[in-house]
Every structure is written in structure tokens, then in C-alpha cells.
């Protein structure tokens, strides 16, 4: 059981590291959103599911309720993260930011 928890959390950590590195390395604002918005979502999903499994060690009503709450966090993040990403993209689009292309690299 513990091994499953550790695998889940390490997976989540890998995605989080990818997200943090991607935010720094990507060339422009639009492509930065790709790692920021989505690798983080999957990272939260993996880590929180791992913690919810770990929480079920002492099996009683309270811990089951706590695990349901954690799954509620995952569900909420899944709903809200695309909306937040879309709202940031929309703000950039309306302000008229241009996106980075291969042409700019060659120049």
C-alpha cells in the first residue's frame, strides 16, 4: 500500500518539476501557459490521490470523509484550471500580445 502511495506522489512530483522548469524555459507567454496550466493540474491529481490513499490507513468514517474531501479538491481543480488558463489567454489576446514563432528564432 505504501509503495502505491510513494509511486503516486513521485509521479506528481515529476509533473510539478516539469511545470516549474517549463515556465522558466519556454520562450513566450502563450507557450508558458502549456506547462503551467496542465502539468500542474495532473501533478495535483497524482499527489492528492496518493495522499487520499494514504489517509485510508485507519479505516473509519472520518478518514473516509477526509478522502472524499481530497477527491473533491481534485474535481474542483479539474473544473477550474482550464477556465483560469483560458481567462489568462483571453487577456493576452485582447491586449494584443503576439505569439512566438520559429521565424523569430532564426532571426
Amino acid at each position: 500500500m505504501d509503495i502505491l502511495v510513494i509511486i503516486f506522489i513521485l509521479f506528481g512530483l515529476l509533473f510539478f518539476i516539469g511545470g516549474a522548469v517549463g515556465i522558466i524555459r519556454m520562450p513566450d507567454f502563450y507557450s508558458r501557459l502549456h506547462p503551467a496550466g496542465k502539468l500542474d493540474t495532473l501533478g495535483i491529481m497524482a499527489v492528492v490521490i496518493g495522499l487520499a490513499i494514504y489517509n485510508l490507513h485507519h479505516f473509519d468514517t472520518l478518514s473516509v470523509l477526509l478522502s472524499i474531501k481530497m477527491i473533491l479538491i481534485v474535481f474542483f481543480v479539474f473544473l477550474s484550471s482550464p477556465t483560469a488558463t483560458h481567462s489568462i489567454v483571453d487577456a493576452g489576446m485582447r491586449a494584443g500580445l503576439r505569439h512566438w514563432t520559429q521565424k523569430q528564432r532564426k532571426e
Partner: peptide
């Protein structure tokens, strides 16, 4: 698709791999 993005992010020559367009 997440693993695909992960590969791009850690790739040393990332700027040649990506080609953003709308």
C-alpha cells in the same frame, strides 16, 4: 499528452522542437 509535453520541456534543444501557431 502530458508525457509528450514533459519530453519537450526537458529536451535540450527545445526551441527547435516547438512551433507555436494558431
Amino acid at each position: 499528452a502530458n508525457f509528450h509535453i514533459l519530453k519537450i520541456v526537458f529536451h535540450p534543444r527545445m526551441k527547435e522542437l516547438i512551433d507555436p501557431h494558431i
